[in-house]
């Protein structure tokens, strides 16, 4: 049995790993990937020590630092369930592996929110994308739809109007992003705005060829011919694995106190998966460090 399992390999989990290793805890890091959301971040300008650094490069530096320490790592496997057992916790993974530890730090972060409409899963990667910054350029010269009304949807729209033939921005509500971004949209000539429209269905054959949207004011549906659908409707916490173990808040986040403790003794959480105000790399790293130090204290008391 490990002293500590750290579940999640973003900034919170990596910082926790370093602090745990320096306390000589026998620790295991389990994660679907290293870096999490930071891997999808092109530029970071507010992490202490760097005026500008690309997300993947920052993660490489974190990873290099972690690898200086004797921490076991299982990367590429996902914890599907975390349960309480005698003397600690057991994590069960998608690959069917089981790991046990006396305490756990849960740092699984957030993932892009899904629309949950027909065609979305079927055409994922076949025209449906959750990473406009990654896949956007593939759709240059084509007609696309961007779903969402917040800053990430508006930024994706502003990028795409430069390269796409036509962009349709579809938002369930009036646009909620920053005024400065909304103003910039007005300059675009190849943009159609559909606010207070619901996305109903993504259609296609081998690849996407259209999206059906409904005008919420009139109830009328219409089909837009597009080859790309960019879904930018925010993020959801990756907290399914602890659903049965600890009560989540209304957004699915894990409530913690100032010491990163959850309601379950021995279960700590840190970073974007928690209810900590402000989801930032520097905040997540700090929270991860705090959780590891608190977990160490807890182990000493046991």
């Amino acid at each position: 049995m490990y002293d500590l399992m750290i579940i999640g390999g973003g900034p919170a989990g990596l910082a926790a790993s370093i602090y745990a290793a320096r306390k000589r805890l026998k620790a295991l890091l389990i994660s679907t990937d290293i870096g999490g959301q930071v891997n999808r971040t092109m530029g970071v300008e507010n992490y202490l020590g760097y005026q500008f650094i690309e997300g993947p490069e920052l993660i490489d530096k974190f990873q290099a630092q972690v690898s200086q320490y004797p921490i076991d790592q299982k990367v590429g496997d996902k914890v599907s369930q975390l349960a309480k057992i005698e003397g600690g916790f057991e994590a069960i993974t998608d690959a069917g592996n089981k790991y046990q530890s006396r305490v756990v730090i849960f740092t699984t972060g957030k993932s892009p929110r899904r629309l949950n409409i027909p065609g979305e899963t079927e055409f994922a990667g076949k025209g449906v994308t959750y990473c406009a910054i990654c896949d956007g350029p593939i759709f240059s010269g084509q007609k696309v739809a961007i779903v969402g009304g917040g800053n990430s949807a508006l930024e994706a729209t502003l990028d795409m109007v430069k390269i796409a033939e036509h962009v349709n921005l579809i938002s369930l509500t009036p646009l909620t992003g920053d005024a400065i971004l909304i103003e910039k949209l007005e300059e675009a000539k190849n943009l159609s705005l559909f606010t207070e429209y619901q996305s109903e269905k993504i259609e296609g054959r081998d690849f996407v060829n259209g999206i059906v949207i409904k005008d919420l004011k009139t109830g009328q549906s219409k089909r837009l011919e597009v080859t790309g659908v960019f879904i930018e409707i925010g993020l959801v916490p990756n907290s399914e694995a602890v659903k049965g173990l600890v009560e989540l808040n209304q957004w699915g986040e894990i409530p913690i106190n100032g010491a990163c403790e959850t309601k379950v003794p021995g279960l700590y959480a840190a970073g974007d998966v928690t209810d900590v105000p402000e989801k930032q790399i520097v905040v997540a790293a700090g929270e991860g460090a705090k959780a590891a130090l608190q977990a160490h204290r807890y182990l000493q008391r046991l």
Binding site: G35, R40, E54, P56, I133, C134, G136
Partner: peptide
């Protein structure tokens, strides 16, 4: 890859 894609960069690195 595309020039703007962080995951591409990570793959190449």
């Amino acid at each position: 890859s595309t020039p703007t894609c962080p995951w591409c960069k990570r793959t190449k690195e």
